[in-house]
Design a protein around this nucleic acid. Structure first.
Lengths: 196, 196
DNA sequence: CGTCTATTTGAATGTACTCAAAAGCGGTGG
DNA sequence: CCACCGCTTTTGAGTACATTCAAATAGACG
């Protein structure tokens, strides 16, 4: 069933009665996207929060000079969107693109808000989701402030070993905040060090 | 009354009945701290989430070589703690210090969890708190990845004009992820540019 | 008032970037 | 299914941004 994974994800933190589960399913929309499709582009109003059923997404920012910064990756079982713009109903500052053909479950803003009112147990669920997201961002910030680029790269591989399989080095570089050329040099150095 | 400000803060997002309010107040603890007091030090188990009633706090990380990175400031009306360690009951990786004599409202982990169960409306409250905290961290990350040190400094002053009044330049530098000497140079350049 | 820390200034250094060009790889269409 | 095209990755040279170290000055706290 197409909502198996999202139900599992939700059930990690809360339990649902059958009627609650049915209500939850009724407000979800399944969506297929092709590699390179944009789920969200800059300036567009961000109406959805996305759950990745299968495939891989990437949220990124593009500055005035065209440089991309990857804000997060989203593999299967992850929630992703431009949260700032979703919550505050603003034009997006991020792009969300499919890195490969993917299956997405989307929940629109209206239904998201309705869900929180109709099934308050989802307040708990999203409290935990946001709490974990906040903690993750804070840990990332600590790493960015205190580690060298090489250490950040090594940590990234250790923390997200699956991500490598879906993304390019260029995208990892833009997640770490370094140029692709420099990441290449880092990898070269690491390879040398491992041999000796 | 000493819990006026925290009640206001909570009431921005949820409303409480009188008995709920009384219950909430009953699990809070008021605490006076002196300038330079540490509310939390590395390795210590982080048992509390703090709300700043009056004064100013700072949460920071210290790496192996002794370099400090400021993770966040907490002025009056802000919540602050080492969230990762508070939630997961781990030894702290952050320090939380008072930048001046301050009045703090603290809530311990046990009561925090009990509060969420006893008054589920607080699930909503903390959902919103964490949601906003996540969004803030994500915006900060975008800035760190895409802006120069000078732009980050200018944005910081614009976004947190009150903070300047309570913290040193060295602390702002460690929040921006640059050396105090370089921040000094940036300020020098900005001053020159403004005149001409 | 004295001491300690923060800030400024400058010189030397290093880390990471830009630009350019070559090599490698993967997706797409014929 | 193969060959081509375009994008990614590598490599290297030159450069810029930011750091470290050191020393002088300023400022704040006890």
């Amino acid at each position: 069933m197409e909502y198996q994974l999202i139900l599992q994800n939700v059930s990690k933190h809360i339990s649902l009665q059958e009627n609650e589960r049915n209500y939850f399913f009724s407000i979800l929309e399944l969506k297929e996207v092709k590699r390179k499709d944009l789920l969200l582009r800059e300036q567009q109003i961000c109406r959805y929060i996305y759950f990745v059923n299968r495939g891989a997404l990437r949220a990124y920012y593009v500055d005035k000079s065209g440089r991309e910064s990857t804000i997060m990756f989203g593999l299967a079982d992850w929630w992703i969107t431009d949260m700032h713009c979703f919550i505050n109903e603003l034009p997006a500052t991020l792009y969300v693109e499919a890195l490969e053909d993917s299956e997405i479950v989307q929940l629109n803003k209206e239904n998201f808000q309705k869900l929180l009112v109709d099934l308050p147990v989802f307040e708990r669920f999203f409290r935990i989701i946001f709490q974990n997201a906040y903690i993750r961002e804070q840990l990332r910030m600590i790493e960015n402030l205190s580690l060298t680029a090489e250490e950040r790269y090594v940590n990234f591989l250790k923390k997200y070993p699956q991500v490598q399989l879906h993304v390019t080095q260029k995208q990892i570089a833009s997640y770490l905040g370094i140029s692709p050329e420099f990441l290449s040099t880092i990898r070269n150095n690491l390879a040398k060090t491992k041999i000796s």
